[in-house]
Write a protein that binds this DNA or RNA. Structure first.
Length: 657
DNA sequence: TGCCTACGCCTTTTT
DNA sequence: GGCGTAGGCA
């Protein structure tokens, strides 16, 4: 079954009701159901709502019998059990992007792969994308030659990809892509293992189906191949993750792949006013590659959509802040949200809100797990947990600085290579054999001892005690003294410790922290704060008042996306659509005439998407002399501004229709 | 080995 | 406007 659910049509409700119904009607028991989502938050919500419908508490034990989670979480769960058939230990580590890049850099350094375009970062980027498409090193020749710039690069990239995979294997580690790709590989080699899961899961549900990539699609389709009970829910108009490998084809071609599918359309919107819905519908009609869907509402037209032209980004932020002040006189600021295209736009908004004393909360800003001190602490714990985790070893062997530099590292690696042992073990042998001297020797000896001690403490006492020991005895805590952000860092570490204490085991803790990137906000949203969010992070949320700021060419649509051609542009339009449909009662669209970009002033054109909205639902909110852009009398700017998309011809003009 | 400085590159969106 | 890195120097 495919449920095409328009924005605000009750998609999540459908999924949770279906789940609850399957169980209450006796058609299925919890352990035979597999439900996958994209975010941990969505998974958590689904679980809670289902349990609620079933009239059960979370501790009832039933919660554990459900397999509700993210694609990556489910993949990890299966591979913990069966990864051994591919040569992985059950306690394999999961690398995130930062880990991947470090590893990539090391491989580049070692193989003197120094390339202008193919930087470690880009290599990882491309490899991740290839993995989304199911392209393993041996299938790299399927990739279009153009992607490699120079013909010779392909060979070098190919050998890098191979080394990268080998390093992962050696460190008993998987990156995000591997969590699913390895499932497919496992099932290919051992069909009986696939059969086991196929048998078990009588019902599969996939949320946000429009965001699945090729591998996720194959993963789900294979699991469902026995019982053919696959239910997907999605909205092609809200597909905004193609850059992460999402295939809109998966939804557009679902009928071809599953000929006897039942398609259900949910077109009644229970969220927004008539005007907001009309604006969204008109906008999205400009896209070609979509399934016809027409949303309707029983709600009134409501207020018109406020369109505001700001002189500058500061002006825009000031306007947003003062409107929010007026809309939320009682201080119930959580009713309002400011949505941006790119996270760097948040700063100007933050400053504007701060100036007027309006509390706010940035979602998806700098992530808790990405903070240096958190990553250091986690790397220490990972090394304690798995002596094979070379990535973790490299991260902390010289943190805090203890005099282990390139020379010492090279020696360690040589031993590791020669004797086929992990870096930690290699260090142990190197020190014992006296192959190193001076400062580095003492430092490495102490380091190995520290890890050993921590491992003991972890077993005899608790992981939290081990963490304390690691941070203290390594000198890490002391090294923060005098640091400008010392207190903040200590607070973060304390918070991490709190999570560790609440975890069942170190293993579970590391699993959570590897896959949950938003644990900082995993609690309830802070009360009475304006939410500032990227459009991507805002999907699935709704607010009475929404400000969609930076409605300008180069920003929305983003310049990079426009360069990708028609498909890129359509995805930008879907982003705008997602933003608009977050609003329940009031929607503001703002753009600025002048914006600073890398300390250079730019004069962006208003977004083409503004022109695609029906004029009758818009209300211009001044300043009064700017009702028509480019009209004479507007303050001293050349009409048309700096025209980012070039062309020397007549100045492009923007008018409200 | 580590500190300092200058420079370059960047900035889409994230499980 | 901010960060990471390369390169020079102690």
């Amino acid at each position: 079954m495919m449920v095409l659910a328009g924005a605000g049509s009750g998609k999540t409700r459908v999924l949770t009701r279906r789940l609850a119904y399957l169980i209450l009607s006796g058609a299925a028991s919890p352990e035979t159901i597999l439900a996958v989502t994209f975010t941990n938050k969505a998974a958590r919500e689904m679980r809670e709502r289902v349990l609620e419908l079933l009239g059960l508490d979370a501790p009832s034990g039933v919660a554990h019998r459900f397999w509700i989670g993210t694609f990556h979480g489910m993949g990890a769960r299966m591979l913990r059990q069966q990864g051994k058939y591919l040569g992985y230990d059950p306690d394999f580590t999961i690398l995130d992007t930062a880990d991947q890049e470090r590893l990539a850099k090391r491989i580049c350094d070692e193989s003197s792969f120094d390339h202008k375009y193919w930087t470690p970062k880009r290599l990882i980027n491309h490899i991740s994308r290839w993995k989304d498409d199911g392209i393993t090193p041996d299938r790299l020749d399927e990739v279009n030659e153009r992607e490699f710039l120079n013909p010779g690069d392909k060979t070098r990239v190919h050998s890098f990809y191979q080394s990268y995979q080998e390093s992962l294997m050696r460190a008993n580690a998987m990156d995000f892509g591997d969590l699913l790709l390895n499932c497919l590989e496992l099932w290919r080699r051992h069909p009986d293992l696939l059969a086991h899961w196929q048998h078990r899961f009588g019902h599969l549900l996939v949320d946000e189906y429009q965001d699945t990539n090729a591998v996720q699609y194959r993963w789900a389709a294979q699991l469902a191949d026995l019982h053919k009970n696959l239910c997907v829910v999605g909205d092609d108009d809200q597909s905004i993750y193609s850059w992460r490998g999402a295939r809109l084809d998966n939804i557009l071609h679902f009928k071809d792949d599953f000929p006897d599918v039942t398609v259900i359309r949910l077109e009644q919107n229970y969220r927004s006013t008539g005007n907001i819905l009309r604006a969204a519908s008109e906008l999205i009609k400009h896209n070609q590659g979509r399934m016809e869907k027409s949303l309707w509402t029983e709600d009134d037209d409501g207020r018109k959509i406020d369109l505001f032209t700001a002189e500058s980004s500061e002006d825009e932020a000031r306007f947003v802040a003062s409107e929010i002040g007026a809309l939320c006189p009682l201080g119930d600021f959580s009713r309002a949200a400011v949505l941006v295209r790119a996270s760097r736009q948040t700063r100007a908004i933050e400053e504007g809100l701060m100036r007027q004393g309006i509390p706010y909360q940035v979602v998806g800003g700098l992530r808790f797990m990405d903070r240096a001190e958190i990553r250091d602490a986690l790397a220490y714990l990972r090394l304690v947990h798995s002596a094979r985790d070379d990535v973790a070893f490299e991260r902390v062997v010289n943190v805090p600085k203890r005099g282990v530099g390139q020379v010492a590292m090279a020696k360690i690696r040589a031993v590791a290579m020669q004797e086929s042992v992990p870096l930690l073990e290699a260090t142990r042998r190197l020190v014992a054999a006296g192959g190193i001297s001076g400062k580095a020797k003492t430092a490495l000896k102490d380091f190995v001892m520290l890890i050993d001690e921590a491992r003991q403490i972890c077993q005899l006492e608790s992981p939290a005690m081990a963490l304390a020991h690691l941070l203290d005895r390594s000198g890490y805590v002391a090294s923060l003294d005098g640091h400008e952000k010392r207190d903040e860092k200590m607070d973060n570490l304390a918070e991490l410790r709190g999570v560790l204490v609440r975890s069942e085991s170190l293993t579970m803790f590391l699993e959570e922290t590897a896959l949950v990137t938003d644990m900082h906000e995993s609690g309830e949203p802070s009360p009475n704060r304006v939410v500032i969010s990227t459009l991507h992070a805002a999907k699935g949320l709704e607010f009475p008042y929404v400000f969609l700021v930076g409605m300008e060419e180069e920003t929305l649509p983003h310049s990079l996306a426009v360069n990708e051609g028609a498909e890129g542009l359509e995805e930008e339009r879907r982003l705008a659509y997602v933003g608009i449909t977050r609003a329940r009662e009031r929607l503001y669209l703002t753009h600025a005439r002048k914006r600073w970009m890398y300390s250079e002033p730019t004069f962006p054109m208003p977004s083409r998407f503004l022109r695609e909205l029906p004029a009758e639902v818009l209300e211009d909110r001044g300043p009064k002399f700017s009702v028509k852009f480019g009209a004479s009398g507007s303050i001293g700017l050349p009409s048309g501004g700096s025209r980012p998309f070039g062309g020397g011809g007549g100045s492009p003009r923007f008018r409200l229709r």
